[in-house]
Amino acid sequence: MARSALDWTWFHRLASPPAFYRLADRWAPRLAIASALLIGYGLVGGLVLAPADYQQGEAFRIIYVHVPAAWLSLFGYSAMASAAFVAIIWRIKLAECVVVCAAPVGASFTALALVTGMLWGKPMWGAYWVWDARLTSELVLLFLYLGVIALNQSFEDPRTAARACGLLALVGVVNVPIVHYSVEWWNSLHQGPTVSKIGKPSIAADMLWPLLSMSVGCMTFFAWAVIRRVQNELLLRERHSSWVRERMLSFDV
């Protein structure tokens, strides 16, 4: 029992705004550097060094942007919904900030996935857009992100806005497995999984490693962007607290 109580104390201490802000200041630069290195290698390896695909030719190279963006659209919403669960059950202010701060970043990756998918679809399918199961469910995901953003701006009280955003995030999370499994559940023009499928990926190693590097790099960029946005949100919400005043004074010095 004592051990369990100690663990919960550690959890709440880490979730306190000043403790998180100090931790974020240490980790954000490291995440930024790791993201730049990983994305840099992924872009060079994918757009320059990887051989052309034997079926799609040079057009396949858009996957080095499209696939990481699509993965991050799902990861971002899952992270947002997880934070919403914590915020609603335990009413932790930090989790509320994560919900509202992750939405614009996740929406950007979702929009990027849709745009690059359309550019890829034109030479592959002969059309920029079709009402395919994967594309339609991904579009719904973008609308869910935008709904969270709009809700957050509709309330004057930030905590009320965060709770409303959290409820929408939890309701909308049902769309995440629909996006992921849509190519398996329905007849779809979108190709099936080639990297994440069980067994050996259907992609050569010299194409796979840059793609994985881009994906991890985009994930670290997502973490960096959300952390920095959460820091700004905390400063805004806690602007009258003593720890924020002390931090502002340290900058003046």
Rank of each mutant, 00 (worst) to 15 (best):
M1K: 10
A2W: 09
D7S: 14
W10V: 11
W10N: 13
F11E: 06
F11I: 01
H12W: 08
L14Y: 15
A15P: 05
P17L: 15
A19C: 09
D25W: 15
I33A: 14
L38I: 07
G40P: 10
Y41D: 08
L43A: 14
A50I: 07
P51A: 13
A52C: 09
D53H: 15
Q56L: 15
R61H: 03
I62R: 06
A70I: 04
S73W: 00
F75C: 01
A79T: 09
S82H: 05
S82A: 12
S82M: 04
F85S: 10
F85N: 10
R91Q: 10
L94R: 07
E96T: 09
V98K: 06
V99P: 00
V100W: 08
C101P: 03
A102H: 00
A103D: 00
V105E: 00
S108C: 13
S108A: 14
F109M: 06
F109K: 00
T110H: 02
L112M: 02
A113I: 02
V115Q: 00
V115G: 03
T116Q: 01
G117R: 02
K122F: 14
W125I: 05
G126A: 11
G126I: 09
G126R: 11
A127Y: 14
A133V: 02
A133I: 01
L139W: 15
L142P: 09
L144V: 07
Y145N: 04
L146C: 13
G147M: 08
A150M: 01
N152E: 06
N152S: 02
S154E: 08
F155S: 04
F155T: 00
E156S: 15
E156C: 12
D157C: 04
P158C: 05
T160V: 10
T160R: 12
A162K: 03
A162G: 08
A162N: 06
R163F: 11
R163M: 05
L167Q: 06
L167I: 07
L168D: 02
A169N: 02
A169G: 05
V171L: 06
G172N: 03
V174T: 14
V176D: 04
S182F: 04
E184F: 07
E184Y: 05
L189I: 12
H190K: 02
Q191K: 13
G192T: 07
T194K: 13
V195I: 12
I198L: 12
P201L: 10
A204C: 07
A204M: 12
A205S: 14
D206H: 07
M207Q: 12
W209G: 12
W209H: 14
P210M: 00
L211T: 01
S213L: 15
S215P: 01
S215F: 02
G217H: 14
C218R: 03
M219L: 15
F221K: 14
F221N: 03
A223Q: 04
V226G: 00
Q231A: 08
R237S: 03
R239A: 15
H240M: 12
S242P: 08
W243A: 04
V244Q: 02
E246H: 14
V253M: 13
